[in-house]
Design a protein around this nucleic acid. Sequence first.
DNA 1: ACCACAGTGGACCCTCTGGTCCAGAAAACG
DNA 2: CGTTTTCTGGACCAGAGGGTCCACTGTGGT
Lengths: 193, 193
Amino acid sequence: MKLTVKGQATRQRIIEGAASYLRSDDAAGVTLDDIRAITGTSKGQIFHYFPDGKEELFLAVARFEADRVLSDQQPHLSALTSWAAWERWRDSVIARYRAQGRTCPLGVLMGQLNSTPGAHEVIGTLLEQWQSELRRGVAEMQQAGLVRSGVDAGRVSAALIAGIQGGVQVLRSTGDVTHLEAALDIVIDYLRG
Amino acid sequence: MKLTVKGQATRQRIIEGAASYLRSDDAAGVTLDDIRAITGTSKGQIFHYFPDGKEELFLAVARFEADRVLSDQQPHLSALTSWAAWERWRDSVIARYRAQGRTCPLGVLMGQLNSTPGAHEVIGTLLEQWQSELRRGVAEMQQAGLVRSGVDAGRVSAALIAGIQGGVQVLRSTGDVTHLEAALDIVIDYLRG
DNA sequence: ACCACAGTGGACCCTCTGGTCCAGAAAACG
DNA sequence: CGTTTTCTGGACCAGAGGGTCCACTGTGGT
C-alpha cells in the first residue's frame, strides 16, 4: 500500500484521535464508529489505512500508547544513577498515573483485542524494555557502590514492574494511588538495604 | 423471586458452569449462549434466574470467583504468625497462579463487565479483604517481635497486593511467573529487614 | 384433586458493529 | 493535460449476541 503525505497524515490522525479518545472517561466500549466520528473520517478510510480492520488499528494505537508509557518516564528512566534520580523517576511514574486516574488506554485496548497474539506481543515488548531499563539502573547503582552487590538486579526490576502493573490496576478499579506508591517505595527501600 | 430447591440448584449450576468455562483457554469472548450450552440450560432459565441478564449473571460469577481467590489461600492467609507460615502462604499463592497459567476468570469477567460500578465493587471488596488479612498478618508478626515495629503494615500489605496483581497480570500476558515470585519475595524480604 | 406459581425450552426480534463495495474527488506522475 | 493511483464518503450487508415472549411442564401447598 502506497501512502502519500496526505495519506500518512490521515493515518496518523486516526491513531492519535483514537488514542486521545481512549484517554476519555467512558471509552470502555470503543467502536470503530466512535473512532470514525472522533477523527472525522469515514468507514472507507479506516479500512483503507488498516486493511485488517479493528485488530490492526487497535494494535497500532496500542503501540503508540506503549511508546508513550516509556517516553513519559524520560529522561528519568534512562538515568537511574543516583538515589535522587530514582526518586525523580518514582515521582514521575506516580504523577503520570495519578493524572491518568481510573482510565487506562492500554487497558481498554487489551480488553478489545481479546488476548490476540499481537496484543500480547505489544505488552510483552513494552514490559521487556521497561524492565531492561530498570535492570540497567540497578546494575549501575551497584557499580557505583550505592547498592550492595548481593542484590539480584533482574529480580528487583521484575518486582518493580509487577508492583507498577498491580498498582495501576488497583488504581483503575479503586481510584486509589496508594498501592502504587507503596509498591514503588518498598522495593526502592529494599534496594537501599 | 421465589426459588425452590431445584431452582437454587439450577442457578448454582449456571454460576459454577460459567466459572468453570472461564477457566478454560479460549474464554476471552464468552457469550450468554456459551454459558447456556455449557450448563445445559435455556435462554429462558438464564433470564429467569438473572433477570438483569448478562451483567447480573457475570457479577454473580465474579463474586463466586472472588471467594475462591481467598479460600484458595486458606488456611495460610489467616495464620501468618511465623516466617514459615509466610513462606507457606507465598508458595500457595504462586502455586495457584502457576496452575491458573495465562487464563484468568476474574480478568475475563472484568473485560466483559466493562467497568460497571458493580464490577469495581466486587474487585474492590476482594482486594480490601485480602489486604486486610495481610495487614493483620504483618501486625501479628510485629506483636510477636518478629518484624521491627517501624514497618508500616498498611503499606507493606498494599505493596503485596500490588505485587500480586501485577505479577498475575504479567503472567497473563507473558506466561511467565517470575515477576510474581520476585514481587512476593522482595516484599517479604523487606519485611524480614 | 386442584390451583398457583416456579421451572424449562426455544422461537423470535432487534440492535449494534465490523466489514464490504463502489462511485466520485483529489493528487501524483508522465 | 490525461491517466493512473490514492483518498474519501457513505450506503449497504451479515452475523452475532443480548434480550423478549409465550407455551408447556413440573411441583408444592391446601
